[in-house]
Every structure is written in C-alpha cells, then in structure tokens.
Amino acid sequence: MNKSQKMKIILAVVAISFIQGLQYCVSPVLGQIQEHYSDINVSLVQMLITAPALLSMIVALVSGGLVVKISKKKLLLFAALVAGITGFLPYLADSFWLLFVSRTLYGVALGLACTLNTAVVAEFFEGNERVSVMGIQAASIGMGMVIITTAGGKLGSFGFTYSYITNIIGFLSFIVLAVMLPDTGTAKVTKTERIRLNKRVFQIAFLGFLEFMFLITFTTNIAMHISEALAGDSSVSGILTGIFSGAQIVMGLILGRVVRVTKQATLPAAMISFLIGAVLLILFPSNLPVLIAASVFCGFSQGMFIPQAMVEVANAVQPVATAMASACFTCAMSFGQLVSPSILNSISKLVFGNISTSNVFKIAAAGMAVSALIGCLITCRSENKRRGEKI
C-alpha cells in the first residue's frame, strides 16, 4: 500500500472520528437547555450526551458480527447518514423529548463509528504504524470535538437550537467515506481465525467502563459548573470543551512517544491525568486559567486512554475478531457513559445530601483514583504472567 492510499484511509479514519465527536455537540448549551426545559430533571438533560450510549452498546455488539455479512464501508456510510439526519430532527418541534429521542437514535451512528474505526485501522496498519494511526484517530476525535463544541458554543449564544447546525458534519463525513475508504468486502472467518475474545479484552473493557463513567462528568457538568462571572456563558463552556478536545488532539499526535515512557502503565496514567483535572475543577470553579488547565488534563486522559485501549484489544485477538473486541470495549465504554449521571448524582445525594457539579466531580475524582489503582494491579498481573510464559 503506497503513501497516497494510506493518506486516503487516514482521511477516512478522520471522517469516522468526526462522527464520534458529534456525541458532544450539545455539551456547550446544556445549561441553556436546562433553563429552557426547566421542568426536566437535570440527570435527563445531562443524558443528552450519554443517551446515545444506550443504542451504541447494542449496535456495537451487533456490528462486531455484522462485518462478516456487510462490508465496513457500507456500515460506516449508513452511520454517517444516521448522524446527519438525527442531528437535524430536533428542528421539527420545540420538544425536549424529540431532542432526547434524536440524541438516543444518534447512538446507532456512534456504535458503528466507535467499533469500526478501530477495525479499519487494524485492517490496514500493523505494529508501530498502527499505534501512530490510532493516535491520529484519537487526535481527529479531539479535532472534531474542538470544531463541534467551539462552533456549537458560538452558535448557541444566539439560541441553543442553533448548535444543532454542527450536525452537518455527518453528511460531510458521508462524502469523505464514499470517496476515500476502500471497500474490502466482508470479513472472512476460517477454521484458524474465528471470532473469539479472551480475558485481556474483558480486562481492558472493564477499565474502559470505569474510565468513562468518571471522565464523562467533564462534558456533562462543565457548562453548569463554571461559576460567578463565567456562569451562563455558553461560549466559555464551549471554549473549555474545545480545549478538552484540543488536548486530546495533542495527546493523540504524541501518543507514540508517551507510550514509550509510560509503557504498560499507559491506561492507569490516563486515569491519573483526569484525577488531576478533576481536583482543579473542584478547587477553582471561577478561575478561567485554572479551568483551562483542568480541561487540558481531562483531555489528555481521553486522548491517551482510548487509542491505547483500542490498540491493546486489537492486539489481543485474531484479525477477524478485531471488530468484536472493539465492540466489547465500546459497549463497556458506552455503558459507563450511560449510567454515569444517574449513579454519580445518586451518590452525591446520598453522601452530601444534595446534587451539585462540585460534589459530582469529588466523587469522580475519588472513583478515578481507585480505578487507577485497579488498572495498575491488572497491568502488573498481566506483565508478570507474560514474563512467566517467556521463562
């Protein structure tokens, strides 16, 4: 495969990543949505970001097996169309429930994109090149989030419904995928290569569940967390979410170098990065420079965790099982996002007596600290086992 062909595939990966980035298109205007639909429970408003995870889990698992019947290109073209169409459905009526259903249906696109993005990279790239391209994938998700959330925040200053315009990215991604992504047909199952998962895949999936149950609190709470002179300004929350995404871009581009330093501890290191960011958010909710630093640390966490986890699940199985392994991780990640508002808000009410963004970040920080410890223990056991097998 020559450089021109590789570049086309990388552009297709970027387009898929932009579809994933649309999950956060309403993040900068959550505060406005909460005010507009004041009779709606805050957890339901936050679920406008996490609700897509419900269908995403189901679709991810189904798509892991669908690749032996339908080509990845056709599935991804369908995902792009779904992302675009569901993004504009809320314009039909001023209804929170239409918005909620539309966001939930977007989960079909999210599930396909999350699962098949890794499968595309694994199909065309190997070894260190695979790690680098996975880093580019993470960077492009961040780039999409920067464009989507920053533009959404600016557009939202004219009214939160204007932020829906960012969903045009779904249709643009459809064009890029149609032109750039080769159609290699369906995955082939043989006697030696079957769709089988192993313990390592489930370990990484469990860590993914923990990471994203706590990490998603940044995007679901940041618009309502900023206080004093910053409060209620959708452009500020859009900027902070954009910086979060920008940090993900930077981390994706330097991932190869970071992994050479963190090695087997990359996933726990990603969790610690969020822990630092969460502590800053708790201590300085009205200090913009510190909030920017917190956004950077939280963005580093996602930019480090997703591509490395995807590489590890892809390397843990046979090539034909890559989509299913990715689907397993996507399912766990999506489930963590889905249950996050309900679980963390409930714990906040139980422990502190009330629900506030500050309390939620405290719980997320404590939970991520424990998760990082669990990640270190799992990593140490896996490394000791690997060394024992070599001996």
Rank of each mutant, 00 (worst) to 15 (best):
Y24N: 11
F88A: 09
P52V: 03
F96A: 07
G87T: 09
Y106M: 12
W97Q: 07
L55W: 01
T115K: 02
V82H: 03
Q20E: 15
V29K: 03
P28G: 06
V45H: 04
V131A: 13
E126D: 11
V68M: 15
I33Q: 04
E35M: 14
I85Q: 06
A79R: 03
V146T: 15
G84W: 05
G64E: 05
V101P: 05
F96E: 09
C25T: 13
T118H: 02
V45E: 04
V42L: 14
E129H: 04
V120N: 02
I136R: 00
S63K: 03
A51V: 12
Q34R: 13
E126T: 11
A122V: 06
L99E: 06
I147Q: 05
S140V: 04
A138G: 04
V108N: 06
G153W: 01
I19M: 10
S27W: 06
M47S: 12
S27V: 10
V120G: 00
G31V: 15
V108Q: 07
K154H: 14
L75D: 01
L98R: 05
G144H: 00
F100T: 04
F158R: 14
M47T: 07
F125Y: 08
G152T: 07
T149S: 08
I70C: 04
E129P: 00
L61I: 12
I148K: 00
L55K: 01
S27N: 12
G144V: 02
F88K: 07
A79S: 13
D39W: 15
A138N: 00
V68D: 12
S157Q: 11
M57P: 05
Q32I: 10
F78H: 08
L112P: 04
G21C: 03
V42S: 14
K72C: 08
L54N: 07
L66R: 05
F125G: 00
G65Y: 13
G127C: 08
Q137W: 12
A60K: 03
I148R: 01
V120K: 01
V59E: 03
S132V: 12
M145W: 10
K74M: 14
K74S: 15
E123M: 12
V146S: 10
S38D: 13
T115E: 04
N117M: 13
M143E: 00
L112Y: 05
G64S: 08
L98V: 10
